[in-house]
Design a protein around this nucleic acid. Structure first.
Length: 518
RNA sequence: GGCGAUAUAGCUCAGUUGGUUAGAGCGUGGGAUUCAUAAGCCCGAGGUCACAGGUUCGAAUCCUGUUAUCGCUACCA
């Protein structure tokens, strides 16, 4: 049986931006998926990287008196360091200034020129000479045909641009959306795209002439390829689809392009059209998550309330890396609405789910085994107590968690795993092993109950591992078991815990004081 | 302005094709326990389902209007 592949991507991050919770969030979602898929035995490629061209980078570099490449190198390094900092397990990190990327983009665009999907045309718009930028008819009207910065009148101007023949793909895109209802998720985002699709598509310019920091158009270096087009290609140039040797091509098409809602249009409409033009398979799903807001307020430069790396560090210091990941994944804006990042909520979630549920359950079970069996895992006698058929419960939870992961329903996947832990708590209350411990004649029953508890806990820990890897490794250490390297399917089967194994009592998530001020 | 969506318990949200006392998690009040990180378990309180009409034997669920909030409206990532 050949191994199934899974390819997941984040957008590539613009080097002109400072990293913040949004970047970390998107990448963490992908990381959880990638880890889970590896656990389920798939051959995974998880891609992230940086978008380094464009007028903004050129300008910022100029201001600092350095070359755009130097600026890009510097900031790409910052983004790259995030991957290590947050234990993000990306398989590659692509940069749009990689010569390999640049040459492939030119090859691919040449192909589009040859097929007629890209052509040289006239661009006409309202030009703001002060800002050196164009406004569309609509936006110019809203601005009353005056520059928003200088107040000077906008002038009608034309310039030559290369266009992508997007309009030719209207029908094909409509069919794509009709045939694959899950192409864009969540569904409310899909509706937005459909709404705009109904308004009709126009060809889009894909080149610029007013700056030079970009990939030159093939045979026409006056024009640079517009950053967006350049950036979208990263998903396939990272797999060498524009090269002769396409070994990595086995990962294409992507299972998920995870993006923020602001860049959905490019991914849901322009990108598939380009791929159609290149005669390449389309990604399975564009998943557009929403935004984080901070303490109930939109994050903005003017408010200065971005959750930046410094702020994130504070949470990790106090609550641990896993607590951070858990909060992002379970409370984040995976759906259509924005989610609030609030200190008090973070604290509550940490207590309710990690301290009181996962941590406490692991603690009470390991404590009893230590106390009643000197830390040696007792044997199961196969008996079913309190009508709790653990073998069936765990296999159902594992199946539920796995299928939720496959469909990128991360919160549901976590809930499935957590349900095991909750049932262990309930089971302990119902069977009261601590009472049996006082009865010499009930030792076998006591042992069986505790075996079932620790074994259920072990299975849940494998399912939770993609989200809280550090703490689950810590638990595995205490349980003297190992996280399977590749495929967890065997490890998820009931009975993996060897009776007689020496284990230790654990306190995974320490209770912490809630600090109101920062 | 145009297109689209949402308004349900203190908070975050579920409520399938209209049908008996509207649900979950968190928070909150009470209780029985003690293995455990004052955690876990049980019980309870709490909603005129935005507002006003309409259709129907019957509407949170369908229709109309009002109000509020939000998203999209394509060349800044």
């Amino acid at each position: 049986m050949t191994q199934e592949t899974r390819y997941i991507t984040t957008p590539i991050y613009y080097v002109n931006d400072k990293p913040h919770i949004g970047h970390v969030y998107t990448t963490t979602l992908c990381d959880v998926y990638a880890r889970a898929m590896r656990n389920f035995g798939h051959d995974v490629f998880f891609l992230t990287g940086t978008d380094e061209h464009g007028v903004k980078v050129e300008e910022s570099a100029q201001k600092r008196g350095i070359t755009p490449q130097a600026l890009a190198d510097e900031n790409a390094a910052v983004f790259q360091s995030i991957m290590e900092m947050f234990s993000l397990t990306n398989d590659a990190f692509i940069r749009t200034t990689d010569p390999k990327h640049e040459s492939q983009v030119q090859t691919l665009v040449s192909g589009l020129l040859a097929s007629g999907d890209v052509y040289l045309g006239d661009f006409e718009g309202w030009y703001d000479s002060g800002q050196e930028e164009y406004h569309t008819e609509n936006s110019a009207r809203e601005l009353d045909y005056k520059s928003p910065i200088s107040g000077k009148p906008l002038v009608r101007a034309t310039e030559k641009n290369y266009y992508f023949r997007l309009s030719a793909y209207q029908k094909k895109l409509e069919k794509l959306f009709a045939d694959h209802p899950d192409f864009v998720r969540p569904s409310s985002r899909r509706n937005e795209v459909l709404g705009r699709l109904r308004e009709g598509l126009q060809d889009v310019p894909i080149s610029r002439t007013n700056f030079s920091w970009g990939i030159p158009m093939p045979d026409d270096p006056e024009h640079v390829i517009y950053v967006w087009i350049d950036a979208l290609f990263n998903y396939i140039t990272a797999l060498d689809l524009g090269e002769e040797d396409k070994t990595l091509g086995k990962y294409w098409p992507a299972n998920y392009h995870v993006v923020g809602k602001e860049i959905l249009w490019f991914h849901a409409v322009i990108w598939p059209a380009i791929l159609m033009a290149l005669d390449l398979p389309l990604p399975k799903c564009i998943y557009a998550h929403s935004f984080w807001i901070s303490e109930g307020r939109k994050m903005s430069k003017s408010l200065g309330n971005f959750i930046d790396l410094k702020e994130i560090d504070k949470y990790i210091d106090v609550y641990s890396m896993d607590a951070w990941r858990f909060y992002l994944v379970t409370q984040g804006p995976l759906g259509a609405t924005d989610a609030d990042f609030a200190a008090a909520k973070f604290h509550d979630v940490y207590n309710a789910h990690l301290v009181n549920t996962v941590g406490n359950c692991a603690s009470r079970v390991t404590a009893m085994i230590e106390k009643y069996f000197d830390g040696a895992v007792p044997a199961d006698n196969g008996e079913i107590f309190a009508e709790t058929d653990w073998k069936s419960i765990c296999s159902k939870a594992a199946a539920c968690s796995q299928s939720a992961m496959e469909t990128f329903s991360l919160q549901e996947a976590v809930e499935c795993a957590m349900s095991i832990v909750r049932q262990v708590d309930l089971f302990i209350n119902t069977t009261a092993p601590f009472k049996l411990a006082k009865d010499e004649t009930k030792q076998e029953e006591l042992g069986a109950i505790l075996y079932q508890c620790i074994e259920a806990l072990r299975i849940s820990s494998i399912l939770l591992h993609p989200v809280i890897p550090v703490k689950m490794d810590e638990l595995h250490n205490a349980l003297n078991v190992e996280m399977p390297k590749q495929n967890t399917s065997t490890a998820l089967e009931w009975g993996g815990m060897e009776p007689g194994t020496t284990i230790q009592k654990v306190a995974l998530f320490p209770r912490v004081e809630f600090a109101t001020s920062e």
